[in-house]
Amino acid sequence: MTKTLIINGETVSIDVDESMPLLWFLRDRLEFTGTKFGCGSGLCGACTVHLNGQAIRACVTPVGSLADQSITTIEGLSDNGDHPLQKAWLDNRVPQCGYCQAGQIMNAASLLSQNTQPSDQDIEMAMQGNICRCGTYQRIKKAIRDAADELAKEA
């Protein structure tokens, strides 16, 4: 029987070679192109998605290993692009080319789900796997702090 997994709340058949990394299943099979290819080796973070809410690197995760698991991509992070991080990213005008930003946001969301009030050092530790060649790190840090403050207000 074909294995399935859940992507952004919808059940999907794993109808490809099970060793195909999740990244290419998303991009080429499902044509969810928000998740980006950067290095193919888990070194840059551009392909970060959530597995049951926690950040993973889709480029090194075989899709067959995810049977019955729940995956969230940037397209499914919020209903209307209104996750506090997405709002903070816009308020701080973070993206330049924007290519790495889906991965940055997904990684930051995973951080905030575990640590609602991260220190600067916590942010640096959690986010150092995500490369931005345009150099938006200063704004990323600020946006994460702002989103954490916003979440604290909501709580």
Binding site: F32, T33, G34, T35, K36, R93, P95, G98
Partner: peptide
């Protein structure tokens, strides 16, 4: 504000690599 940032944060900005 850049005209395209709204698309970026929801993964809808398409690049050369995204053409289907």
């Amino acid at each position: 504000k850049r005209h395209d940032q709204d698309d970026v944060v929801v993964g809808k900005r398409t690049y050369g690599v995204d053409t289907k």
